[in-house]
Design a protein around this nucleic acid. Structure first.
Lengths: 232, 232
DNA sequence: GCCAATAAACGTCATAATGACATTTATTTT
DNA sequence: AAAATAAATGTCATTATGACGTTTATTGGC
């Protein structure tokens, strides 16, 4: 970017940071990926994965980059959450942080890369105290995830490509912290006709085995155009 | 703010702007308040009301300030919408803009103050072309308003304190661009018991006159705590 | 003073969606 | 062959929804 004078010159500039709330689902629990901060202040304390906005990248790109640096993942669900701009939110210097949340499949995640940052998964209901306003960010992200999964089929981003109805139900139970009646839950899903039933079963969790399904994004688009609205 | 060196020093700083999408409701139409840009580039073209983030204010405060400068209003509904950070979104200089949307009562709005900025109300379905990425911001704000009014009782912020059921229905029709059956609409509202019926009628729009109501925020809080969820 | 015009208020019925609940089925392990 | 496990499925009563027409209160014109 050029640094020639411009008519915004009298206005102050600010550090702009990105922070990512990274959700995963494992062992019937909703989890977030946290890192150990490697510099002062708050060195050694738990933190969201973040970084600073560079001149040559857009804000969305920057968030994606930061996510990639930690997880090695691209093309995952990432959405802007909120921008945090209280004056003293960061004690080092006045910084505006744009937070994003990401939904990833824990098995796709690059564990080796994570080690570099001292990354660890924590259950959403049992994570350590976090620096700055990161607890607020996590809470807001969880709220968003809850409201968004009710009306948009994004939960699938947290499951393997092939999943069972009971797995999906457990995911929703973890996200919304409530139990769903198995019969009513699968009735609702079947009625939406968004899932393709495969001719395979998953026998990890039961002797009988549960049918595997795939989410059908094309069908979803088609239904959307007909005025369908997802709701769970 | 002090300018002493800190460990973020190597990171680039950026201009941070605020933009407000200001909604109003008048003559059965949803409207937005736009101003005429007073400097180059794009001087004389229509724009959202915006400003730059100062060192001594939080981002939310800054948005509130900018809104106040144009409308003279405080204590109105304002909510952060989204942060726009594409590199070249502003041709003058790289600027990250945090957009907010506000819901105001058009009669409370200070017309004199507006003149200073060349402000004018435009129907949401018929406004002039806007600078930069402001059209995207307006579209996003409208989408947000639509989804938010479905599940939260914020529409009242656009009506006078006392309003009639038909007025409220017209508001929803304007926001969602569809017609609602008057009987079903008022049945739904009555069933929620969120409105206090007053012993006055509004005779502006009919010979019979329509009862005036007030939204009851305390009752809403009470119901919320009992697991009630608003939906229209 | 009566009639016409206006928009508000209100009720019913058929259909669809929801929530609550128990049994049967396929398979593996002992 | 029996026990254990979790998956799959059906019914019924209740509630919410969408579609529809008539009556009511009031004003203004004749």
């Amino acid at each position: 970017m050029n640094n020639s004078p411009n008519l915004y010159e009298p206005c102050p500039k600010h550090y702009v940071a990105l922070d990512n709330i990274i959700f995963g689902f494992d062992e019937k629990e909703l989890k977030i990926l946290l890192i150990k901060r490697s510099f002062e202040p708050e060195k050694g304390n738990w933190s969201l994965m973040g970084g600073f906005l560079k001149d040559e990248e857009g804000v969305d790109e920057a968030a994606t980059r930061v996510l990639y640096e930690l997880t090695g993942l691209r093309n995952v669900f990432v959405e802007q959450l909120h921008t945090y701009g209280a004056i003293h939110r960061d004690p080092v210097a006045r910084t505006v942080s744009v937070a994003y949340y990401a939904l990833i499949r824990v098995n796709d995640y690059d564990t080796e890369l994570g080690k570099k940052y001292g990354a660890r998964w924590f259950p959403i209901h049992n994570y350590p105290s976090l620096i700055f306003d990161h607890p607020q960010m996590v809470q807001d992200a969880l709220d968003r995830l809850r409201s968004k999964t009710r009306t948009q089929p994004i939960g699938f981003e947290l499951l393997p490509e092939k999943f069972t109805i009971p797995q999906l139900r457990h995911l929703y139970e973890a996200i919304h912290n409530q139990v769903y009646d198995p019969r009513n839950f699968s009735r609702k899903l079947n009625s939406m006709k968004l899932l393709i039933q495969l001719h395979e079963k998953d026998k990890e969790n039961s002797k009988k085995g549960a049918y595997l399904y795939k989410f059908d994004p094309n069908r979803y688009k088609m239904l959307l155009s007909q005025g369908f609205s997802f709701e769970l």
